[in-house]
Design a protein around this nucleic acid. Structure first.
Lengths: 262, 262
DNA sequence: TAGATTGTTAATCGATTAACAATC
DNA sequence: TAGATTGTTAATCGATTAACAATC
């Protein structure tokens, strides 16, 4: 805490770019795999390939943490695993609570990738009375009313929302009220939180939509004659701010509109 | 595909920035919600708020699609829903196959957000013989050996991998071999695919790790005395490949070393 | 017309990348 | 020393944002 070396662009220096932070877990995973295979040292080129990025980016990213490599040699795998873990805060234990134990909540509760990185699921909460007591992943499902108790009891600072969209904001508010300052949201909706609370969102269908966008392009490129978008380009018509005809009437698209999840 | 109007910076014009493409689904969701509430028109300010972005960004994003708003008025909700849907390729039907029907595969198969956007799960495949025939989300689980048949039969161009990491690359290869050119990967590993194949990855634990990073910073800021990181700073050891002194050995500097914030 | 709001410009900011001097 | 590879620089690229002229 006394260190004042200005030569190190690390954490204090300026702060690690978000894009870099988002890639550290990738490097960590690749390094863990190498570590398990007993590989002692790795070059930026090799590690970059394993993580799916280019080596310049990798070296730049790592340089934000410090100078942990050796010129002419590479990086010591174990040492780098530790440094990245530490930077990410994974050398400590993170009690996590999951709210919403539907299919997704189940999957999350059983997901091995959490435990192995210091995330410990301390409670599963659900609003459905019929589910209370049910055993999932070694835990008994508790009622969401116990949220505040659970958070206090286990000092939870990370909450995972896996409820339907309709319940998400309420649950979010309660988490925040109970003192949780990091939220991972799987519900397909935007959460509003006060300053100082961090929210990250995982949206299963958004990724699919992005793929569809590119897939469509490919199709269009391959065969401009293809039967692509046939559903209503005839509807494509400017707006008006006045009478409005040619609107999307498309039946098949509005039917299970936000059929949300469960 | 014959259009040559140079005035439109849309699809053909130059290509929509990736960052914009990734936000279109957000706008679409917000618009769909407005549409369901019967709201006829929305301003960029309102829509931006609903989607959780700022209005300048929203307007810039929409401008890549065309000029679909009306100055002084705003955007016609239905019309914009259609335009974005079309741009994303959601006005057509996308047959999807899910490989790996564990907890996550289950959740995905039952996820309403897919069907409502034109994604139709046409088959669930698994390698576990005991699971074949089981009924999930209205489909019978089939053996992964049928992958090629399923792809051909339903003209699948999007595959969703929800297998363990160890099986993911194999499944990926088979998908690609069968002609699938878009893959959504939930397995925690990097997939290698030939040019022309699009892969998107959803990693449940990476998001949590990113949250932990920020949470750690907060904790450090709040209480520099906190009992953070206790798990392994003894591993913090310089690499070798050569004697190496001046490494960061600092003990107390290593435990809540960067917990300081910046 | 007056008020409102878009679409676009231009400035700024941040991220990526190639290249190479430093150095093991 | 010679070869290898890092850490860093600087150029480039892309994304964000405020501001405002265009225009409904």
């Amino acid at each position: 805490m006394t260190t004042g070396r200005p030569s190190r662009p690390s954490s204090r220096g300026r702060g690690i770019p978000e894009a870099t932070v988002a890639r550290l877990p990738l490097y960590l995973r690749a390094l863990t795999a190498l570590s398990e295979r007993g590989v002692p040292t790795v070059s930026s080129e090799e590690l970059a390939a394993a993580a799916g990025v280019n080596s310049a980016k990798l070296r730049k990213d790592l340089s934000y943490l410090g100078s942990y490599g050796t010129r002419g040699v590479g990086y010591d795998v174990e040492y780098l695993v530790y440094q990245i873990s530490r930077e990410l805060g994974l050398t400590q234990d993170w009690p996590v609570v999951i709210i919403g134990v539907g299919n997704l909540g189940h999957a999350l509760a059983n997901y091995g990738g959490f435990a192995s990185r210091g995330f410990r699921v301390v409670a599963l909460l659900d609003a459905d009375p019929h589910r209370i007591g049910e055993r999932v992943a070694g835990l008994h499902i508790r009622h969401v009313n116990e949220l505040e108790d659970v958070v206090a009891e286990h000092n939870v600072s990370i909450g995972v929302i896996a409820t339907p969209a309709s319940a998400a904001q309420d649950v979010c508010d309660r988490l925040v009220g109970a003192g949780v300052t990091s939220i991972l949201n799987f519900a397909p909706c935007v959460l509003s939180v006060p300053e100082g609370v961090n929210v990250r969102k995982v949206d299963l269908s958004i990724e699919l939509q992005i793929l569809a966008f590119h897939e469509q392009r490919k199709a269009g490129r391959a065969a401009s004659l293809a039967p692509v978008a046939t559903v209503g380009q005839n509807l494509a018509r400017p707006l008006d701010g006045a009478p409005d005809l040619s609107r999307r009437t498309v039946p098949d698209e509005d039917d299970l509109p936000e059929a949300m999840r469960a």
